[in-house]
């Protein structure tokens, strides 16, 4: 059986990649994909601990997260469409008027 530390390493690596994408990318689609990566890093964590404790709760939570990610993508794509209509581009730095 693979030790749990490996799962955790994998998950933190995926999470950090996602985080890096969110922090550096300007394209909204990349943004969305990076968020997906971070969500899936969390899923890996849940399933890993589910395996370790022999308890299905973690897997059920992972399923919920997948459903939630699907919904989030739907909303995210919608936002990107509106972004494109308004700014002619999907650069997230363009939409900077909602501030003080």
């Amino acid at each position: 059986m693979v030790p749990v530390e490996y799962y955790l390493l994998l998950s933190s690596a995926v999470f950090c990649i996602g985080l890096y994408g969110v922090l550096t990318r300007r394209n909204a689609l990349y943004f969305l994909m990076s968020v997906e990566l971070m969500l899936n890093a969390a899923n890996i964590n849940l399933i890993a601990f589910s395996l370790v404790w022999g308890n299905l709760t973690g897997q059920v939570f992972a399923l919920f997260t997948i459903a939630l990610a699907a919904a989030e993508v739907a909303v995210g794509i919608g936002i990107i469409l509106v972004l494109y209509r308004n700014f002619g581009d999907i650069d997230v730095m363009d939409a900077a008027t909602m501030r003080w």
């Binding site: 985080l19 900077a96 003080w100």
Partner: peptide
Amino acid sequence: VRRIQTGIVGNYALLLT
């Protein structure tokens, strides 16, 4: 303090992190 509300998504993400 309100200056941190730049309106740029990336900054918010950075602050969150």
